[in-house]
Design a protein around this nucleic acid. Structure first.
Lengths: 331, 331
DNA sequence: TTGAAAGCGCTAACAG
DNA sequence: CTGTTAGCGCTTTCAA
């Protein structure tokens, strides 16, 4: 099979015996040509298998219809539930972009790699940015419109979409933890906005006389680290544990069981981020419910607005519901 | 803040008092300019925040470094396990592309949408193509290099990477189902190559005197449909059921339990596609193990070879292991 | 060692 | 109604 040069607009023009303008107009529906000409040109273009070059078209100005999705790595070697969160965001955002004629490019959360990429992006969504995230600076530097799901707490000027984790967590605690309780918050991995928010939710509960709060950092998601931290918390008298996320909650549940502590009898267990898995197993775990799909759709819509040059795009907090389960039933 | 026009190579040239050629050479390392000139130009470019336009660069020929990933929709409103399969493929393929300077674009499995997209693709991976998949024709028509994970069984000329489901399933059956057994295969959803393969694996087992095989089509994944089909199979005397995939297997397990049939006592249960979830729950389900991550890496590597113009890219079958669990223990 | 100029494929002014 | 022409930003001969 011969590798012939792709047919260009010039080829079509020649074959049809018209000018390139006529071809361009005929195919794009601009300029009112007589239907006869238009159809003739279309027929010939079709027959020649002509496909306008997206690159050449993009060169004239407006970009090429590409939007990036850049996902920060999860806390502890993401598997399980990060995947479904992540997948929900990617599919929903991507779908929203598609229905606007844009396509989503998967971007690495790594400036080194990003620098090698040279892709003409109309905008980017960064998911769960870290504190002072260099990736955000990267996009800022090249004037690429950027919107985050979750926030870089160090940036004030940025536009974002986020779950209202502070309020969600506070409500979750109020509904399930009796006043005066010693509550331990368990963190793990890099600082993301939802963690900060969860902590401030818990803090506000404590500050308003709900109880006392202590914060514990887990070295990792491995059982031994989790066990160590849980022991520490329990030893200090905590009778309720709030974990940063679902995976940590599952580990804590296992650890408590192994320690012979009853959930919720001896210790109540909560998670700041829900996931299907929390509903399964011996003792379902109460949690605040993030809405990745909704966030993704909002983020995509807003980013598209920004791309269209809309001036008044604002950040949005999305309210959370809570899932009450056996690990911390209603008071 | 002023919205100034982006600095182009011309701007840099003017600012540096040299020609555009010099700028181009200085930045791309071509043509042996004196280091003095080069550094000076680079400094100025840097200071002006100059970023060469990927589009303009691509216009000269070679494309822009984009590769598509196009995933066919799963059987019954994909959730659960499709997600992890899908995610493994997307992340691993995308990573492989990145390390070669390419970026992955998420493409819809829908020619209508694809037509609106106009993205300059160097190649595409289509995941789990359907029979006579129009999407494949679409890419073929525009001379876009295409490679599939799973195969379109109707296409002979195409290049693919696939699990060797036929052999895997046959081994799974041989290891767990005693000769002479009536085995029922349960299908659901669109025809994909792994289904065809699973069936031919089972057929070859039956043909070689292993037992008898009947094939049943489920109308959907809803409990009532599954229950209906299972009842049908059991009524015909089947004492072993092999399902097309994990989700169907989970449903069948529930249905059998609801019918008061013991697994594996009354009926042995197998799945042609493994997933983490099959290892959980009251009775773990034996299954053949697909390797999405490995397939994705192989697919990406091969596609990149094709893009580089390598002539001898061939299809590959990847061997499967099996997971033996309680639903069908070793004979 | 450097610069001028010719495109790459397409669209949008501007003439005819 | 249709054709000519001038770019879009860059790379790449080919001269100077």
């Amino acid at each position: 099979m011969l590798k012939m040069r792709k047919t260009t607009i010039k080829g079509v023009a020649a074959a049809a015996g018209v000018s390139v303008t006529t071809v361009s107009d005929a195919l794009s529906g601009k300029g009112r040509l007589p239907d006869a000409t238009r159809e003739k040109v279309q027929a010939i273009a079709n027959q020649l298998g002509y496909r306008p070059s997206a690159i050449a078209r993009g060169l004239r100005g407006s970009g090429i219809g590409l939007v990036g999705i850049c996902i920060a790595p999860a806390g502890g070697g993401g598997a399980l539930t990060d995947v479904s969160y992540w997948a929900a965001i990617v599919t929903h955002a991507s779908q929203a972009f598609l229905s606007d004629g844009h396509a989503a490019v998967l971007l690495p959360h790594d400036v080194g790699l990003l620098e090698t990429l040279h892709i003409p992006l109309d905008g980017v969504i960064v998911v769960d940015p870290l504190e002072r995230d260099p990736v955000l600076t990267f996009f800022e530097d090249r004037n690429i419109r950027c919107l985050t799901i979750g926030r870089d707490v160090s940036k004030t000027e940025s536009i974002w979409v986020d779950d209202d984790t502070a309020t969600g967590v506070r409500r979750l605690i109020e509904a399930t933890i009796s006043p005066g309780t010693k509550l331990a918050f368990l963190r793990v991995g890099p600082i993301k906005s939802y963690v900060t928010d969860a902590i401030s939710g818990a803090r506000s509960w404590a500050a308003d006389g709900g109880g006392t709060l202590s914060i514990h950092q887990c070295a990792g998601l491995e059982s031994e680290h989790v066990a160590h931290t849980v022991r520490e918390a329990v030893h200090e008298g905590a009778t309720a544990i709030l974990t940063q996320n679902d995976r940590l909650a599952l580990r804590v549940r296992d650890v408590l069981q192994a320690m012979g502590r009853d959930v919720p009898g001896d210790v109540r267990l909560l998670s700041a981020a829900d996931a299907m898995e929390l509903g399964q197993g011996p003792v379902g775990i109460s949690a605040a419910r993030p809405h990745p799909a909704r966030l993704a759709e909002m983020a995509a819509a807003k980013l598209l607005d920004m791309i269209r040059g809309q001036p008044d795009v604002a950040s949005t907090m999305s309210p959370m519901e809570v899932s009450i389960r056996e690990s911390a039933p209603l008071l």
